[in-house]
Design a protein around this nucleic acid. Sequence first.
DNA 1: GCCGTTTTCGGCCCGACTGTTTTCAGTCG
Length: 585
Amino acid sequence: MKNEELAKIFFAMSQYLQMQDIAFKPQAYEKAAFTIQTLPEDIEDIFQKGGEKALESLPGIGKSIAEKIKEYLTTGAIGEYEQLKKKFPVDIENLTAVEGIGPKTIKILYQKLKIKNLADLEKAAQEGKIRRLSGFGIKSEQNILQAIAFLKKSTGRFLLGEILPVVKNVWQKLNSLKEVQQVSPAGSVRRRKETIGDVDFLVVSDNPAKVMDYFCSLPGIIKILAKGETRSSVRMRQGFDMDIRVVPAQSYGAALQYFTGSKEHNIVLRKLAMDKGFKLNEYGLFRSGKMIVCAKEEDVYKNLGLCWMEPELRENQGEIEAALAQAKGKQSLPKLIGYNDILGDLHVHSNWDGGADSLQELALFAIEMGYQYLGIADHTKFLRIEKGLDEKKLAQRSGAIQALNRKLATQGYHFRILEGCEANIMPDGSLDIAQQALSKLDYVIAGIHSQMKMPALQMTERIIKAMQNPYVNIISHPTGRLLQKRDEYEIDFEKILQAAQKTNTILEINSFPARLDLKDVFIKKAKEAGVKMVINSDAHQKEQMHFVEYGIAQARRGWAEKKDIINTLPLNKLLACFGEKQKIK
DNA sequence: GCCGTTTTCGGCCCGACTGTTTTCAGTCG
């Protein structure tokens, strides 16, 4: 998959063009880069199937950029990019990663001090050479050193699962201030993106100065990056930044819309506003200089002729068109699955395999969460390291589960523990445990836990073969990615979807913060293909069952509705749904 | 360089904050 490489090149070209003060082209390259980066398909496939014409049909890609993509795919390089690199032999990607350093600064630093990379930059700053340049001073030099130090220890982005608990805590604190009338997180946290760069809070207050003081003195702050009357910015110990903005009450709706983004969503929205004779910015919606009060976000959308939409949808992936259609009376926006719609978790590990908690502890925790059922999906024997169960142990566990079900029933709980397992899919697509043992379970999950670097064709066939097994109901973490660590397997997702549809196999949305697998664009594709999904926590200790919130968020980002997710079904219907699989045997 | 139900030319999102400057350029979101 060359998507990421190409996106990187076009981002770099955008920077190079900015260095040369060229207008508008940089944005064009940036947009193309973004399109490629978020493309669900392999760009090489698109080119092979439809040639340059197919490339040009992608948003932000025209004749010139399509030609460059072709050049890269056929020759492995882009001539113009190579020329730019020769002209400015600088490490753009890493230098722009330094906060406060942009293309113009990079150009000056290269021309005056021959700075090409991070090491050069750090050295020059340490030697006090930067402060002597016109336009720079001691402060800018110090900021560069601090930013480099920050860069060195931070990965730049954080998992939603790491950030959201901190955000909820700060949110609660701000909410309890009497000077605060309204407060909400905005930005990618509000959209529940899988990784977060920094956090934005939006506040309405009758005493902004007090709020700023309070915010800048929160525990866990290691640096105040900016403190103004309406905006402040701080760096947290964990390594991420938090911003706060105070806005007037009559601007709150517009501001919340604006700062929630995404950037791409907003650009389209502002264009739409302009077309209709409005001007839209963070302060409100204006018509010939007059502000139309938008105290609520709904007001902004309504005035533009759109329905309000959930923040998780705002990625310019068709939601604006859908909201336009919906405002005209056509149900087009999805009715997203709610955060309380899940009735049970079907992927939890007990202490029968490597999990931390007993069946009873897990069951009681699930009951506390309001679940009606809980599926125990312990590993099977291939995963020795996780103490995977063999046929004999599975049979023993069955006795324990049935006994516990009886005990819970006598205690008056309307709750059922389901017997499942997470079998390992071997390289040839077979499972690591006897069919006979699987036939006795309520349901079976199968997943890949080894040999993840197979070529696309083989890997796809491997998963499809597992789906063809009449006992396999669910494929766990179908693409195998680990955020910030490991890419997804090489697979042909379209083929996987076709097979899932044909075999009545359910695809998992794994809620583990580093997995969130399926990813949003794949969820959307699965939904469109009519393939059912299940949102599971993959908990190895009971508290991790709360991870399901991240899985639901991911499902919502993929436009999933309640009807697309099988563990929103009551128990009898869920079991009937598993039964569908057996019919094809 | 891209784009088009006012279009194949002439537009392209916009404001706060910083650090350096005396009026603004660069960066960021």
